[in-house]
Amino acid sequence: MANSNLKETILNPIFKGNPITVLVLGICSSLAVTVELKGALVMALSVTIVTGLSSLVCSLLRKTIPNRVRIIVQLVVVALMVILVDQVLKAFEATYAIDKSLSVYIGLIITNCIVMGRIEAFALGNKPVPSLLDGLANGAGYGMILIIVAFFRELLGSGTIFGFSVVPDAAYAAGYMNNGLVILPPFALILLGLIIWIHRSIDKDLQEK
């Protein structure tokens, strides 16, 4: 029983209860930071760490938090995690440039509904370990979609994967061109729509009658 519950906790947010494609949360950043895989990967990891740790801390504190100020306390915890992630990204040479290119979006993780949503819906009523896993899984579900979108946008928009050119020069010589529309946010929305469509046609349970 406990085992299957734990499995459900981890797998549900990634597939059936995916925060982006099913709950449609965290759309803003998924449109904004998916031009390149590198940025999307860092964003995905950052959100995963923030949701995981915030859920863990809030779950540990759940019996002590005064009900009237619980949103504020959650907010303080999430803000702490976001600032920590941002500070760490800024400190390392490898991630500094990515942090710069993500600009305000790292700071805006705090406004990502997934983070507060999971604390409010799950962490405050569950033990720390399931809460940590729930947070990490939701972050992973979010990150997975981000990476899928970024993969197509970088491939079609810039002809590269993780910055390495994959479209042969011969293709460009033959008249192939990178698609400028793919770079722009509207295409991310179209792509996201396609992913939701595919997801729903595979998983019939998600279709409204």
């Binding site: 002590t64 100020v69 306390v73 303080v76 803000a79 920590l84 500070q87 760490v88 500094y96």
Partner: peptide, 27 residues
Amino acid sequence: YTAVVVVIVAAVLAFVSQKLGPMQAAN
């Protein structure tokens, strides 16, 4: 409760900022 939470959070942030400051400055 809120006062204690804020003080703890501030202390953690101050500590991290001190530790990572030189690396960030170099970047």
